[in-house]
């Protein structure tokens, strides 16, 4: 008998939803009435009344017939917890993961009743971290820029992330195109796919290899580079695909 909790003492997801609604109404209008709840939840008053009774039984609300409803102290704490959880999940889906608002709301409602307190706690910490960490904002923006745009292709995501992760912070990591004539650097990564990438690889341009920009064509494009013992010309657009670490004066002076 004691294994099965009595229905009267359990806070079901439906009850949680009611509690949440009452919390929102109280916050908004100082008071919650049955007809407001009926309106907000889009249900019949016949199903609201038993739920309110149950909540009252659980000691979460003050409820007497035809009067306004108020939360008890425990009720308010519980409601606050549920509400913040809801808010958190909506934000996760909508703001961080970039889902449409309506879907985000729907998924948040489905998920909020099933998370453990520890799970919520970890999520909260994670998002607090993202918000307070200096790179957090960039991180979210990058996710939206790469993963959401390139949803179909994991490879493009990797390429895109590499580009973002490598370029903005280190001023010495640039694309081949950004070199000045006479400057060199060692290749970090070849981006892109297909024929152009394979041709670049076939020419011996690959990670770790040193490459130097000799000159540009008088018209500015294409470029003329030296790779190991050979000299190769390629267009700016192709040079854009080659990321390298620019030689520092120390490299140049080395024997």
């Amino acid at each position: 008998m004691n294994a099965a909790p009595t229905p009267n003492t359990e806070l079901t997801s439906a009850l949680e939803d009611y509690l949440e609604t009452i919390f929102e109404l109280v916050k908004e209008r100082k008071v919650a009435r049955v007809k407001d709840i009926v309106k907000a939840r889009n249900v019949k008053s016949a199903s609201v009344i038993p739920a309110l009774r149950r909540l009252a039984d659980l000691g979460l609300i003050h409820y007497t017939k035809r009067e306004s409803i108020d939360l008890t102290e425990t009720g308010e704490a519980t409601a606050r917890r549920i509400y913040s959880r809801h808010k958190l999940l909506v934000r996760l889906f909508r703001d961080f993961l970039g889902m449409p608002a309506e879907l985000a709301l729907q998924d948040a409602c489905a998920m909020e009743h099933n998370l453990s307190d520890a799970g919520v706690d970890h999520l909260v910490r994670f998002f607090e971290f993202l918000q307070s960490c200096p790179d957090g904002h960039d991180f979210i923006e990058r996710f939206k820029g790469c993963a959401l745009v390139n949803a179909e292709s994991p490879q493009d995501i990797a390429t895109c992330c590499a580009k973002l992760a490598l370029s903005p912070n280190d001023p010495n990591i640039i694309s081949l195109r950004q070199l000045k004539p006479g400057q060199g650097g060692s290749v970090i990564r070849i981006q892109g796919t297909g024929a152009i990438r394979q041709r670049i690889l076939d020419m011996g341009i690959m990670p770790e290899v040193h490459i130097q920009l000799e000159r540009r064509s008088p018209a500015g494009d294409p470029l003329w580079v030296r790779v190991q013992n050979s000299q190769i010309s390629l267009r700016k657009k192709e040079a854009d695909m080659i990321l390298l670490r620019k030689d520092t004066p120390a490299d140049t002076n080395a024997p």
């Binding site: 024929a195 041709r199 003329w224 000299q231 190769i232 010309s233 267009r235």
Partner: peptide, 10 residues
């Protein structure tokens, strides 16, 4: 358009 990656022999 096709790639323009070309060797320049001595």
């Amino acid at each position: 358009e096709a790639p323009f990656v070309m060797e320049l022999p001595p």
